[in-house]
Each structure stands twice: as structure tokens, then as C-alpha cells.
């Protein structure tokens, strides 16, 4: 998708919220948008999501898109699973597929117990999980996240980080705004800042240290590491077949999947997160999901 000289204002003759925005949104990229409060970040995301049309300029090549708003309203007369199934159908899925994917995503975010709960009875955090599940179950080609992490608990935030990493590793594009500058740092392909009404490259975020995950794996002696390791992987391999791989946390699932699906598969000995080490037979939540 490509934005050419895109401008947006909310009234003819009114002030430009955005103007002269040229942006390439390549497939498989993770883009971060930052900017001060009220700077037009959300306007840009709504343009990217296809909710708003630009007042001037053009947007070419819109892929299948899903959008996660910052605060999802609970004033809809559906149960969580009912809403998700409806939205899955709107996204082009058949009912049973939408239902199954909705349940799987709710389970992954630890909200499967609320599948049958009315949206208006859900807590803010659980509502937000429904909003995130709605977008992820569609397996979109373009995912737009407007502070989607706000209101999620720590585990769900980490899960969303992983889900975004998985999605971009399959070739889909994700564009996000988040107030936490460390969010997905290290996995970001390009960062932009809304400055006035203009969109400028953001160099500040790239210097943020990215949270890294270290994976200890063992392969056969003399076998080299499999191809297709995620971008940003730092690998040390010794002659006996022991490997130590460090990746940005957002790509850790992709790394594990690549190792486990390699022929011959690699044995995962440990997965270490910064500040937390889980050794041996108790794999991390990411590894657990892959092996279960």
C-alpha cells in the first residue's frame, strides 16, 4: 500500500490535521507511528485502516484490513463470541471458522471463560481482548493497532506482541501507535513521527534497547542452523551442535517454530527472557504453545 501526498482535514477550509504525507507500507513490515497527543496519529491510522478517506492525495493498493481501536465499547448487545463470529463473517469467514478462530484467540488471551458473557458485562481489559481478537481472527494483510495494548493485562500485552510478530512473519503488515516507546522495539522496520501536520521519519525509537529473548537449542553436530530465521537473530553455534540464539522478543515464536520445524528438528533446551529465566523441561509460554 502507498500513500501519495495524503492530507486530511475535518472541515473544508479547516486546519489540516495531516498534509503531504508520503508513506510506503511494504508487505511484511512493522511500522511504528509516534507523536504528541492530538497530533493526528489516530487520524493517520484511520486513513490507513480505510475508515477515513483522505481530503487530498491518494491511497493505492489497499489490502484486507483489520483495525483495533484504543478503547473498545461494550455497549453492543452481543456476547463476546457472538460479536466475534459476526465480525469474522464480515471479514469474509464462514460462521463455524469464525467461531473456532474467535474461541482460539480468546483462549490465547486468557478470556475464553468470557466467551458467553455479554459485552456490556465485560471489564475494560476483557473488552479490549475482544477488540484484539476481532482483528487477529481475520488474519488480515494489514493490521492497524491504535494503542491496542492499553487496558490489557501484562500477559495479554506480551501475547499481543507475539501475535503481531507472528503476523508480520507471515508477510502481513502491521502499523501501530503505542505510548510505550519500548513496545515491539527491535522488531520495528520503520518508525515515523507526526510532527505538525507532517509525517517524518522517527530516529528516536531505533536507539531504544529492544527486549531480547535468548533461546538455547541443540542440533546434530555439524548441522548448520536452518534457513528462514527471523530478522535480527544473533546466533552462536559451536561444533558440538549447541546454539545460542538471541532475537527481539516479538520474533521469538517465529524463531522457535523455525527451529522445531527444521529437518532434522532442533531440540529447545531453554528459553530465556530478560529478567526471567525458565530452564529445561519447563518451557516458556511461547514454547509451551508450540509443543502442546
Amino acid at each position: 500500500m502507498r500513500l501519495t501526498k495524503v492530507g486530511r482535514r475535518y472541515a473544508p477550509g479547516g486546519p489540516w490535521v495531516l498534509r503531504g504525507v508520503d508513506l510506503d507500507v511494504p508487505a511484511g513490515a512493522l511500522l511504528r507511528i509516534s507523536g504528541a497527543n492530538g497530533s493526528g496519529k489516530s487520524t493517520l491510522l484511520r486513513l490507513l485502516a480505510g475508515i477515513d478517506a483522505p481530503s487530498e492525495g491518494r491511497i493505492h493498493g489497499r489490502p484486507r484490513t483489520a483495525y483495533v481501536p484504543e478503547r473498545f465499547p461494550s455497549a453492543l448487545p452481543f456476547t463476546a463470541i457472538g460479536y466475534l463470529t459476526h465480525l469474522g463473517r464480515v471479514h469474509g469467514l464462514r460462521g463455524p471458522v469464525a467461531d473456532a478462530r474467535a474461541r482460539a484467540w480468546l483462549e490465547r488471551f486468557g478470556a475464553d471463560g468470557h466467551a458467553g458473557t455479554q459485552l456490556r458485562e465485560l471489564s475494560k481489559g476483557t473488552s479490549q481482548k475482544v477488540a484484539v481478537a476481532q482483528a487477529l481472527l481475520a488474519e488480515p494483510e494489514l493490521l492497524i493497532l491504535d494503542e491496542a495494548w492499553t487496558g490489557l493485562d501484562t500477559a495479554a500485552r506480551a501475547e499481543l506482541d507475539l501475535a503481531v510478530g507472528e503476523l508480520t512473519s507471515t508477510g502481513a503488515t502491521a502499523v501501530y501507535v503505542d505510548h510505550d516507546p519500548r513496545r515491539l522495539a527491535g522488531a520495528v522496520d520503520a518508525a515515523y513521527r507526526v510532527d505538525g501536520a507532517a509525517l517524518v521519519p522517527d530516529t528516536a525509537t531505533s536507539s531504544e534497547p529492544a527486549p531480547q529473548v535468548t533461546v538455547l537449542a541443540r542440533g546434530r553436530a555439524g548441522v548448520s542452523l536452518p534457513g528462514g530465521l527471523p530478522e535480527g537473530t544473533h546466533a552462536e553455534l559451536d561444533a558440538a551442535g549447541s546454539a545460542r540464539l538471541t532475537v527481539p522478543a516479538a520474533h521469538s515464536d517465529t524463531l522457535l517454530r523455525t527451529l522445531l520445524h527444521a529437518d532434522p528438528p532442533w531440540h529447545i533446551r531453554a528459553v530465556r527472557e530478560p529478567g526471567r529465566a525458565v530452564e529445561g523441561p519447563q518451557p516458556s509460554s511461547a514454547a509451551q504453545e508450540l509443543t502442546s
Binding site: R46, A49, G50, I51, T65, A66, Y67, V68, P69, E70, R71, F72, P73, L76, L87, V90, H91, A131, Q134, A135, A138, I144
Partner: peptide, 10 residues
């Protein structure tokens, strides 16, 4: 509005 945005995007 937020739900409308979600539907509109899809």
C-alpha cells in the same frame, strides 16, 4: 464510534 470503525475497516 469505535465499533463502527472496526466494521468500517473490515
Amino acid at each position: 464510534p469505535a465499533a463502527r470503525h472496526v466494521t468500517a475497516s473490515a
